[in-house]
């Protein structure tokens, strides 16, 4: 794969729900190591794009490529296996399980032992389980939740739940991380914390990030490139500064944050 191949490419992707075109003729090129922003008002189709990439929805038209391979018809667990991890707009943790177990489950994507080895507790099962637990603790450490490892996930405060969800996504060893409104429900101070956190995540790991975000200050601090959507249509594409000057964007946001 040469350096000109986008990590993720979407060509003419469409998704309809009944008569509603949730996404219409959507194109996207995300290069390796980018932090790319998807912006748009509620109902613009941003989460639908995430769901089509990760196989929760099947596109009605168009194609999606990951590292040059066609993944248009991928199933959700296969997307995770090839290196696409995601978080959810309304956080989806394994609520009744411990914080550590949330991350261990994601670490299990590597496998490492068979059913027979597990049922008989053979040496390889013990070894892999121990390594998995250590890896999980490493991910918890990277988001600062080490001392919460044995807590029940749903008992964490909101901000920690977001971080746990990101740690869990990172534990699947992704190449592409999809963040769905990571700053949702955060005040200004918390969202600035989040900016630093995402920057650090990107610096320390060889990942590419595609994020949906409403907070323009978060987007301008993090993303080099972005796409603005409205009612499923692409309004503008380019650097954050270019997009801010775009007339169609200004019209759509009329008096909004932009």
């Amino acid at each position: 794969m040469n350096s000109n191949t986008p990590l993720l490419e979407m060509k003419g992707v469409e998704k309809h729900f009944g008569g509603v075109r949730a996404i219409d003729n959507f194109d996207l090129r995300v290069m390796p190591r980018d932090i790319y922003g998807l912006i748009g008002p509620n109902g613009a189709g941003k989460t639908t794009i995430f769901n089509t990439i990760t196989g929760i929805y099947q596109a009605d038209a168009g194609q999606i490529f990951f590292e040059g391979k066609d993944i248009t018809k991928i199933r959700p667990h296969e997307a995770a296996a090839i290196g696409i991890a995601r978080t959810f707009q309304n956080i989806r943790l394994f609520g009744n399980l411990s914080v550590k177990m949330n991350v261990i489950i994601a670490c299990n994507i590597r496998g490492g032992y068979t059913m027979a080895e597990a049922l008989l507790r053979l040496p390889r099962y013990r070894k892999v389980s121990k390594e998995t637990e250590e890896r999980a603790m490493k991910f918890l450490d990277s988001v600062g939740l080490t001392d919460k490892a044995d807590d029940i996930a749903s008992s964490l405060p909101y901000g920690h739940q977001r971080k746990l969800e990101i740690a869990r996504a990172m534990a699947t060893d992704p190449k592409l991380l999809l963040l769905d409104e990571p700053a949702a429900g955060m005040n200004e101070e918390e969202s600035l914390d989040l900016v630093d956190f995402v920057k650090k995540l990107h610096r320390d790991n060889p990942i590419t990030i595609l994020m949906i975000e409403h907070h323009m200050d978060v987007v301008s601090r993090l993303c080099e490139q972005c796409t603005v959507l409205d009612f499923g249509k692409t309004l503008a594409q380019g650097t954050v500064e270019e997009v801010k000057q775009n007339e169609a964007v200004i019209a759509a946001y009329l008096g909004g944050e932009l």
């Binding site: 929760i56 489950i105 496998g111 597990a118 534990a171 699947t172």
Partner: peptide
Amino acid sequence: SRFGQAFSAIRENEVAAAANGID
């Protein structure tokens, strides 16, 4: 084991389980 942990993940949230590589 990882198999039982996958069961619990499905119980807690099917969509999140699939997004974390569980068939």
